[in-house]
Amino acid sequence: MLYALCFLLFMIGLYCAVVKKNMVKIVFGIMIMEYAVNLFLIMLGYHFGGVAPIIDKSQFDPGTGQIAGSFLNNSVDPLPQALVLTAIVIGLGSLALMISICIRTYEKYGTFDITQIRRLKG
């Protein structure tokens, strides 16, 4: 069910990126797609009643170096969270570049409307 909602969000983003005429809105559409995927990744690792996958002193036995079993059974999967962090950084980089290109285009043409910015054809 929740996965379907994620997919819906992804589709909204795709629709926005494909249909809208405003450059900034296209960028937002792409960002919505990216965040839908991030949400999907986070939900993959989650299970009900899970705890955050951060080890602190109470779960750690300094003598043996072992970690409490209850923690290992309950914690959510940390790998998707690491992936999402990386994906967010990448998204930030491409967002900054896209916005700067939008600003430059606005300086040249004075508009964000892609139907009026059309030097290049097929």
Partner: peptide, 20 residues
């Protein structure tokens, strides 16, 4: 700039598909 924007939009959509 225009070509770069076009490339960037399609490239980002492709990347999102791959990540999904």
């Amino acid at each position: 700039l225009e070509a770069s924007f076009k490339y960037m939009v399609l490239g980002s959509i492709a990347s999102t598909f791959i990540l999904f």
